[in-house]
Amino acid sequence: MTSRPLLEIAAGSLASALAAQEGGADRVELCSSLAEGGITPSRGMLAVVRERVRIPVYVLVRPRGGDFLYEEADFDIMRRDIEACVALGYDGVVIGALDADGNVDPRCGELVKAAGKLGVTFHRAIDASSDMGQALEKVLALGCERVLTSGGCASALAGAHVIAGLVKQAGDRIKVMAGAGIRSGNLVEVMRLTRAHECHGSARTVIKSSMRYLNPALNDLAPDIEQSSVEEVRAMKAALISLCAH
């Protein structure tokens, strides 16, 4: 590769965003509830992260987990969340929506318009579309600057051949960012197979709870915390840098 692909870290907390920054990530995708694919973070998190994180941050705009078929009220929520990101001075937003037949919802254009001068990424809703090649063209027409994809598979490695096809189709018209299941151990393989412009991962690790008392009856409330690891972010960044040497 002639230039190093960028590394984006999906951060589900302030601590994860700061770990991404310390580890050398190029950009953060800020969200909440990573376990359900991510939803829009709270206004409080938005305010504090904007104050403390210096590298570019894009905010995930997704009103709920589940599918990407949204009612008009959901679009109203997303428009207002985007307005909040604009007001706080964020670098970009991450959007995506489909209609019932798996096509890119044209109302996404309203979200791009609301973002104004902010950058816009189309998220993995494209992986749930009925025709990814056609969806990529729709995303291009919306004016998005990149699309995040696993190639329609559970992981970017499994969907590497599809991602490679999207990269070829995209050319220099839009950036294709590979994501889902990427860690430092498989990052080089994924990027060599896909030739993707950017790479996305959470770099998560489990941090044991510091609570001295734990109620043994609360089996449904796991006390341990998942957050991005500075060491794993550094390892992912080093793997990307190594691509340029070959």
Rank of each mutant, 00 (worst) to 15 (best):
R146A: 10
G37W: 06
E226T: 09
G116V: 12
G38F: 10
G12Q: 07
A164V: 03
D99P: 03
H123I: 01
D81N: 15
T194N: 06
A114D: 04
L30D: 04
C199T: 15
D101Y: 00
P223E: 09
A125N: 06
I77E: 14
R79Q: 15
A20E: 03
D101H: 02
D99Y: 13
L221W: 05
H161Q: 12
D74V: 00
G179I: 02
A239C: 03
E72Y: 01
S150Y: 05
F68R: 04
F68S: 04
K237N: 14
T121G: 02
C108E: 08
G109Y: 04
G152K: 08
I207E: 15
D99I: 05
G179H: 06
R212N: 07
A11G: 08
T121A: 12
A115H: 08
Y58F: 14
I207G: 01
N103D: 05
Q227W: 13
M78F: 10
G96A: 11
A141F: 03
G89C: 09
I95T: 08
D105H: 15
P5G: 09
A10G: 11
L218F: 05
A135G: 10
G151D: 03
A178S: 14
E110G: 02
S33Q: 13
R146F: 08
N186D: 12
G143Q: 03
G143Y: 11
A84Q: 14
L157S: 11
A125C: 10
Y70N: 09
C144P: 02
V57Q: 00
G89N: 05
V104Q: 02
C244S: 14
V28M: 04
I77N: 01
L218M: 13
